[in-house]
Computed example of a mutant assay.
Amino acid sequence: MALKATNGDQRRLLALQDVDTRIVRLQAKAKALPQTKRIDELDALLARLDRAVLDRLGAHDDATAEVARIESDVQLVEARLKRDQERLQVVKDAKTATATEHEIATLERRRSTLEDLELEAMQAQEDAAAALAAARAEAGEARAERDRLAAERAEVAAGLERELAEARAERADRTVAVPADLLALYDRQRERYGIGATLLQHRTSAASGVELNASELHQIRQTPDDEVILDPNSSAILVRTEESGL
């Protein structure tokens, strides 16, 4: 048995469909915010940059530890040099003096070698510090961009959520005036096919954009205005008005 509904009630579905279309568009827009793609790219980039910072921090720590180790060795050599030099001043035995002088010469060579190594280690430490600072700066710039985009996205999302709330409230208001059986059919067709109701405008379905053929138009002309019919192309409820050209 065909569903019956006044033409006025059927026309109310067009306004309801407009609201539902707006809701769908807002939901799609909320899921595809322009900032999201770049934020995802930055998240991947930051994962790499943060690892680079950790690696360079480790290299800097190693270089700092090497400088400290060499400095400690230098201090030990200098302490032994001072002891031997002081000993040489008081030693009386020629053999002991010769051995002490030999040890002093060895220690001086060792100190010279350590000082060269210390300079190299200090340069390595400086290079590691510069590399660490560069890595931190690069990560900081990426993180600042991500934070800025995240704030923008949150603001846009909040605006869309407000629009969605308004649209949903409008939908609730509009459904009150639609008979329950007609609304149930509308919702069922919308869930199945994406469109619940469409205007027949100049013999063309607004939903499908397809002009109805002569046979279809003849059948529609024979159908009472209060009988609900479906668009043969979109399966949405086909609403007839003065614009239908029947």
Rank of each mutant, 00 (worst) to 15 (best):
L132G: 02
R136L: 03
T113G: 10
R136M: 06
L117K: 15
A121H: 07
A139G: 05
D116Q: 14
A134L: 03
E118H: 12
S112K: 11
E118R: 15
R143W: 00
L119K: 14
D116M: 07
S112G: 05
G140T: 08
A134Y: 00
L119E: 11
A131C: 02
D116V: 14
T113L: 09
Q125V: 00
L117F: 00
A129K: 13
S112A: 13
E118Q: 15
Q123I: 03
A135K: 01
D116G: 07
A139P: 09
R143L: 05
L114W: 08
A142F: 05
Q125I: 01
E138D: 08
L117C: 01
R143T: 06
Q123M: 05
R143M: 03
E138S: 03
A128Y: 06
Q125D: 09
L132V: 03
A131H: 12
A129W: 06
E126K: 15
A129L: 04
L114K: 11
A144T: 13
E138R: 08
E141I: 07
D127P: 04
A130G: 01
L132K: 07
E126G: 03
E126P: 00
A139I: 04
L114M: 11
A129N: 07
L119R: 14
R136I: 01
R143Y: 00
E141K: 11
A134Q: 11
T113P: 00
L114T: 05
A142T: 04
A121N: 11
Q125H: 06
A133S: 08
Q123F: 05
R143V: 02
A142L: 03
A121G: 08
A135Y: 00
E138T: 02
D116E: 13
L132Q: 09
T113R: 10
A139M: 03
A135M: 01
T113A: 11
E120R: 15
S112T: 14
R143P: 05
E120S: 13
E120F: 01
M122S: 13
L119W: 06
Q125T: 04
D127T: 13
G140Q: 13
S112E: 10
E126S: 12
E115K: 14
E141P: 01
E126N: 09
A130S: 07
R136N: 08
T113I: 07
A135D: 02
E115S: 11
A131D: 14
A135H: 02
A130Q: 14
E118N: 12
A133D: 06
T113D: 10
A124K: 14
A134K: 11
L132Y: 07
A130H: 08
E126M: 05
Q123S: 09
A139Q: 09
A124S: 10
A135P: 10
A129F: 09
D127F: 07
L114C: 02
E120M: 07
E120K: 15
L119V: 09
E120A: 09
A121E: 11
A124I: 07
A137H: 10
A134H: 04
A137F: 01
A130N: 08
L114S: 03
A139E: 02
E115Q: 15
A134G: 02
A134P: 09
A137T: 12
A139S: 14
A128C: 10
S112W: 10
A130I: 04
G140C: 07
A135V: 01
G140N: 09
E138Q: 14
